[in-house]
Amino acid sequence: MTSISDATSGTAAAEEAEEAEPVWRSRGTDRRSTRTIRVYTSATLIVATVLAVLLVPPAVQLDQQAIDLSAKLLPPSWEHPFGTDDVGRDLLLRCVHGLRVSLLVGVAAALAATVIGTAVGACAGALGGWVDRGVMRLVDTFSSVPHLLLGIFIIAMFRPGVWPVVISVALTHWLSTARIVRAEILSLRSRPYIDAAVSGGASRWRVTVRHLLPGVLPQAALAAVLMIPHAMWHESALSFLGLGLPTHTASLGTLVQSARGSLLAGQWWPTLFPGLFIIVPTLAIAGLAGAWRERLNPRRRSELML
């Protein structure tokens, strides 16, 4: 048994070395730094957006509606960083106001859609049987109609304004959340810990509310956050088609829409800046949500487990 003596002598030799503090080396693939940059960039952009939307309109006493035909379609300058539109309104101010409306619509619609979707999905998943089948057929039916068409149909029942747009977006977007929540609940429902709860005398309500729903809430919240940009785009699309908000209300959609004409005339700024205002928050939210999704990943959570 040569190897035993080898090991023994090795152990003995190392005994002296044991006294000294070992040299620690970092191991493992550290992808954290790039991820951190992404998270911070996204977070900064979102904070900046929210601050701009909340603080700029009350702080700047200029009237975003003020028409000045002598200053129409001016290119970006120090006085008007984003230029002016075809009736001489300052575009930076219009964009911030537009973002304000778009964000409001986005957040409100995403929230409403998530609440509806979670409730429906949880009912379907937790009750199962014919309830599940019926509800999911309903979801399928709704999904088979193009979102925009359905949205237009809903809008047509109201007078143009912010809330009809919110309702229209919410009613077309809860379907995916319902699917996600139902699937998640179904997978949780077959876990032994649900069996243990049933065996421990928990009622159907308690199992759903105390054990199933908390398990899907992170997923639902993630879906809600990812839905905000989606809802903003939907609003923009509706407004661009002239079906969302009335054109005098600045939203990112109406801004792009009213700038169509000038774009053909070679004036790029009235479309570019509102467009950027749609894209940048979208990317920032997606970046942050991506990092969050990684955190939710059970593999990463159990990484530290021994």
């Binding site: 032994p192 810990y193 069996d195 065996s199 421990g200 005398g201």
Partner: peptide, 25 residues
């Protein structure tokens, strides 16, 4: 859930995998 609660709780169950049979929260 169709079994009366008194009957369900008369039986205690322990499963193979403790990780899966405990609510992670």
């Amino acid at each position: 859930h169709q079994a009366p609660r008194a009957l369900r709780t008369a039986i205690g169950v322990v499963f193979q995998q403790p990780r899966l049979s405990s609510d992670p929260r």
